[in-house]
Protein backbone atom coordinates (compact mmCIF):
# COMPACT_ATOMS: atom_id res chain seq x y z
CA UNK A 1 0.00 0.00 0.00
CA UNK A 2 2.75 2.37 0.98
CA UNK A 3 4.70 1.48 -2.12
CA UNK A 4 1.69 2.29 -4.27
CA UNK A 5 1.25 5.68 -2.59
CA UNK A 6 4.93 6.43 -3.02
CA UNK A 7 4.79 5.55 -6.69
CA UNK A 8 1.77 7.82 -7.19
CA UNK A 9 3.51 10.69 -5.42
CA UNK A 10 6.61 10.25 -7.54
CA UNK A 11 4.48 10.24 -10.70
CA UNK A 12 2.83 13.49 -9.64
CA UNK A 13 6.17 15.10 -8.91
CA UNK A 14 7.55 14.00 -12.28
CA UNK A 15 4.46 15.32 -14.05
CA UNK A 16 4.67 18.63 -12.22
CA UNK A 17 8.37 19.02 -13.00
CA UNK A 18 7.75 18.14 -16.65
CA UNK A 19 5.08 20.80 -16.94
CA UNK A 20 7.31 23.40 -15.35
CA UNK A 21 10.18 22.48 -17.67
CA UNK A 22 7.93 22.72 -20.72
CA UNK A 23 6.65 26.10 -19.60
CA UNK A 24 10.22 27.27 -19.16
CA UNK A 25 11.25 25.98 -22.56
CA UNK A 26 8.20 27.26 -24.38
CA UNK A 27 7.82 30.63 -22.72
CA UNK A 28 7.51 33.22 -25.40
CA UNK A 29 7.47 30.57 -28.12
CA UNK A 30 4.91 32.32 -30.27
CA UNK A 31 5.90 35.94 -30.06
CA UNK A 32 8.49 38.35 -31.32
CA UNK A 33 11.49 39.28 -29.22
CA UNK A 34 13.29 42.60 -29.31
CA UNK A 35 16.61 40.81 -29.59
CA UNK A 36 15.67 38.66 -32.55
CA UNK A 37 13.33 41.05 -34.32
CA UNK A 38 15.30 44.24 -33.85
CA UNK A 39 18.76 43.48 -32.51
CA UNK A 40 19.97 41.23 -35.28
CA UNK A 41 18.83 43.80 -37.82
CA UNK A 42 20.98 46.50 -36.28
CA UNK A 43 23.95 45.79 -38.47
CA UNK A 44 26.09 48.88 -38.68
CA UNK A 45 28.36 47.50 -41.34
CA UNK A 46 31.50 49.10 -42.67
CA UNK A 47 30.19 52.56 -41.96
CA UNK A 48 29.53 51.90 -38.30
CA UNK A 49 31.93 52.38 -35.43
CA UNK A 50 34.94 50.30 -36.31
CA UNK A 51 37.95 52.41 -35.47
CA UNK A 52 39.10 54.70 -32.69
CA UNK A 53 37.80 58.15 -33.67
CA UNK A 54 40.35 60.86 -34.35
CA UNK A 55 38.85 64.26 -33.60
CA UNK A 56 39.51 67.34 -35.69
CA UNK A 57 39.19 70.11 -33.11
CA UNK A 58 39.32 72.65 -35.89
CA UNK A 59 35.88 71.44 -36.91
CA UNK A 60 34.30 70.37 -33.64
CA UNK A 61 32.31 72.74 -31.53
CA UNK A 62 29.49 70.46 -30.57
CA UNK A 63 27.03 70.14 -27.78
CA UNK A 64 23.61 71.43 -26.92
CA UNK A 65 22.82 75.04 -27.75
Amino acid sequence: MKKKQLATTIKKIILGCSLLMMVSVMEGCANMHMSTSVGVGMSFGPYGPSVRPVMNVGVYSGGRW
Binding site: Y47, P49, V51, R52, P53, N56, Y60, S61, W65
Partner: peptide, 29 residues
Protein backbone atom coordinates in the same frame (compact mmCIF):
# COMPACT_ATOMS: atom_id res chain seq x y z
CA UNK B 1 34.37 80.50 -33.24
CA UNK B 2 33.96 80.25 -37.01
CA UNK B 3 32.60 76.70 -36.85
CA UNK B 4 29.13 76.34 -38.39
CA UNK B 5 26.39 74.44 -36.58
CA UNK B 6 22.83 73.68 -37.61
CA UNK B 7 20.00 73.34 -35.08
CA UNK B 8 16.88 71.47 -36.13
CA UNK B 9 13.73 72.57 -34.36
CA UNK B 10 10.24 71.15 -34.25
CA UNK B 11 7.34 73.24 -32.95
CA UNK B 12 9.93 75.84 -31.87
CA UNK B 13 11.72 73.24 -29.72
CA UNK B 14 15.40 72.66 -30.51
CA UNK B 15 15.41 68.93 -31.16
CA UNK B 16 18.93 68.15 -32.35
CA UNK B 17 22.06 69.56 -33.95
CA UNK B 18 24.08 68.88 -37.07
CA UNK B 19 27.77 69.59 -37.50
CA UNK B 20 30.44 68.77 -40.03
CA UNK B 21 31.85 65.38 -39.06
CA UNK B 22 34.77 66.11 -36.74
CA UNK B 23 35.86 62.47 -36.60
CA UNK B 24 38.33 62.17 -39.42
CA UNK B 25 38.21 58.40 -39.70
CA UNK B 26 34.51 57.73 -39.16
CA UNK B 27 31.51 58.22 -41.37
CA UNK B 28 28.29 60.04 -40.58
CA UNK B 29 26.57 59.04 -37.35
Amino acid sequence: DGKPYWVMTTDDVPAMGVTKNPAENMTTQ
